[in-house]
Simulated scan of single mutants.
Amino acid sequence: MVVEIDSVSKWYGDFQVLTDCTAHVHRGDVVVVCGPSGSGKSTLIKTVNGLEPFQKGQIMVNDISVGDSKTNLPKLRSRVGMVFQHFELFPHLTIIDNLTVA
């Protein structure tokens, strides 16, 4: 298994944007995350490489825990790619950080 998302939940204050999300992606799989606006698609994708923290559950990428504070996220991100429908800057990052995140 390459990506394991197990019972992941995320809140922005009192608003829960992800509720017990679970998915397993195997090597060679092609995955599309689709749904209505505001359903948490981008948030879920951002949690996989640690761009957004999550409050509950576990995400493993190649047997590395994304939520573990000891995980080297820049190194992990160098192995995880993602494509968004519309390019947008991450509001919690500076301009330089947005430009160099890839």
Rank of each mutant, 00 (worst) to 15 (best):
S39H: 03
S69N: 07
Q16I: 00
I5E: 05
Q55I: 04
V66G: 01
E4L: 00
S69E: 06
G35E: 14
K56C: 01
S37F: 06
T94V: 01
V8N: 02
I45N: 03
V61K: 00
N98F: 05
E88K: 09
P36Q: 14
I96L: 14
D63E: 14
E52W: 07
K41Q: 08
G50E: 10
L76P: 02
D63W: 00
F54Q: 00
V3T: 02
S37E: 13
H92L: 05
K70C: 00
F84D: 04
R79S: 14
V30N: 08
V17W: 11
A102R: 13
T22D: 00
R77N: 05
T47N: 15
G35C: 06
H86Y: 08
V3K: 04
L44I: 09
L93K: 12
L89P: 03
V83C: 07
V61D: 01
P74Q: 09
V17A: 15
G13W: 04
V30W: 14
T100F: 06
T100Q: 08
T47K: 14
T94Y: 09
P36N: 08
L99C: 09
L73P: 04
V66P: 00
S78Q: 15
K70Y: 03
V33L: 09
F84T: 10
L76N: 02
N62G: 00
P53A: 12
G40M: 12
V83F: 06
D6A: 13
C34D: 13
C21S: 04
Q16V: 04
N49I: 01
K46W: 00
L44G: 06
V101I: 12
C34G: 08
V61N: 05
T19R: 13
S42I: 08
R27D: 11
K10A: 07
V3Q: 03
F87P: 06
H86G: 01
V31D: 03
N98C: 04
G38W: 07
E4K: 02
S7A: 13
V101K: 10
